[in-house]
Write a protein that binds this DNA or RNA. Structure first.
Lengths: 139, 139
DNA sequence: TACATTATTACAACTGAGTTGCAAATATAA
DNA sequence: TTATATTTGCAACTCAGTTGTAATAATGTA
């Protein structure tokens, strides 16, 4: 059973993040969709309910608290998705992301990509963005 | 023996790219350094010699002609590096890039990273950005 | 419930990378 | 040298993301 964001936030220790109307609305967006959402989409979708600054600041805090993780899409735009098993201390979401060139959708992939040992370099983090066609767009 | 950019450009078929003073200056920058250079660095370094619009437009053309390839760094900023064995038709430079968190330097890595087959996804391109410490910053 | 404290929000103004339109300048071909 | 096509500088713009501040709302405590 996957815990919804809304439920999760009521259970987990959220640091100093308050249960405001804006926070709840934002989390509801991530409950609706399992795939990632770009910040510009969120700002546009919630423009009636809240200011774009609020969106940016809440997303930033939710990431700090290990509820969401962020990454950059193919144009350098920021995306967010739900974390699975992250804490505020460590983000375990170092997984690849897939962006469909047809419909633009971005998914978190569960496959793990092996980064080989590279002489003279000490690799500490990896960002893998794959592009191609998603299931719906292949047919 | 590695051909310098300046020499390379005189030999290769460059489409409709003209040998202007600005093009030569830009290519000289890539001859000086073997690692990648960010656009903002280039714009700043060449601000006396040319307009930033010129920098952006020349880089764009050099990429089209397979002389340079571009990718996004950790902040979504654009970087360029010399291509090795690319033509204007196909860019072979689908290699990982490494960005040092200490000094900010970005290198093209020669290692190849295997992207596994992913069910329901047709992967067409991959962007891999590794972060950590480079040789100079490990010690 | 009421109050004090602290976090959050809206708003407007800003930053900075990257883009666009256009007239003037320059490279190339004839 | 001239005609043609490309390139350049400039200014103004776009747009994602940030910052300061005053007002507002959530939380803890009495």
């Amino acid at each position: 059973m996957q815990l919804s964001c809304i439920n999760f936030i009521y259970i987990c220790i959220m640091g100093v993040l308050r249960k405001t109307k804006s926070v709840k609305l934002l989390l509801t967006e991530f409950d609706k969709k399992s795939s990632a959402i770009s910040v510009i989409t969120l700002v546009d979708r919630l423009k009636v309910e809240m200011n774009k600054t609020t969106v940016y600041r809440i997303l930033d805090k939710l990431e700090d608290d290990g509820i969401l993780h962020s990454f950059l899409g193919k144009n350098g735009l920021k995306w967010y998705a739900k974390c699975k098993g992250c804490s505020s201390k460590t983000h375990h979401d170092v997984h690849p992301h897939f962006q469909c060139v047809s419909c633009g959708k971005v998914d978190c992939l569960t496959v793990s990509i092996t980064i080989p040992e590279i002489p003279n370099y000490k690799v500490e983090a990896s960002h893998v963005l794959l592009q191609g066609k998603c299931k719906a767009c292949i047919g």
